[in-house]
């Protein structure tokens, strides 16, 4: 799976990347509407880690910072909290993305559970959201849901980026 990506650069799928971030932000905003579901992962983070893990020509650290700032604004949290968490996770992905992009989607999904668990721990330490028992269960089940969603997201984005690269 990973071999095919060697010949694709971020420039070739620039619009797909931008559109995927916009769509991910809309989905996150939808989840925030009303009684938000804490077991749903931040799609923006999944998309960010996907592009960061699959393209070697960019680091995506600055993108992580900007997207994090937008998430801070969306969640109404202190400006910079999500930005720093996103940068930290992007850096962790950068450290082993050469391995990561060679994994099968299922292996990537297991890795993603680890990333999301780290994300939840950092969020719990920094934001300390007050939660009742049901919300705590939902909060800690998010990495598992994120792992499952990753399978569909990665396959979808793989197909889309290949198609766009061939067209360009």
């Amino acid at each position: 799976m990973g071999d095919a990506f060697i010949y694709i650069t971020s420039r070739q799928v620039r619009w797909v990347i931008m559109l995927s971030f916009v769509l991910a932000l809309i989905v996150d905003a939808l989840n925030l509407l009303g009684e938000s579901y804490l077991f749903l992962p931040p799609i923006t983070l999944l998309v960010l880690l996907y592009w960061c893990g699959h393209f070697l020509d960019q680091t995506y650290v600055s993108t992580a910072f900007v997207i994090g700032l937008l998430m801070d604004t969306l969640f109404n949290s202190t400006l910079g909290i999500h930005a720093l968490i996103f940068v930290l996770l992007t850096f962790a992905m950068l450290r082993h993305r050469l391995h990561f992009r060679g994994y099968s989607v299922l292996q990537q999904s297991l890795n993603m559970i680890g990333f999301l668990l780290l994300y939840q721990i950092l969020r719990l330490i920094v934001l300390a959201p007050p939660m009742n028992e049901a919300q705590q269960i939902a909060f800690w089940s998010m990495p598992l849901v994120g792992g499952v969603l990753w399978i569909f997201l990665a396959k979808g984005l793989n197909r889309l980026s290949h198609q766009k690269a061939i067209e360009s």
């Binding site: 932000l25 905003a29 939808l30 925030l32 509407l33 700032l69 604004t73 969306l74």
Partner: peptide, 21 residues
């Protein structure tokens, strides 16, 4: 002001999210 600028940027996204409802 910076947060206001970010909020302005996010405004169309919030509106799109609200659109189905």
């Amino acid at each position: 002001n910076f947060r206001s600028a970010l909020l302005t940027l996010l405004d169309p996204i919030e509106r799109l999210a609200q659109a189905p409802k």
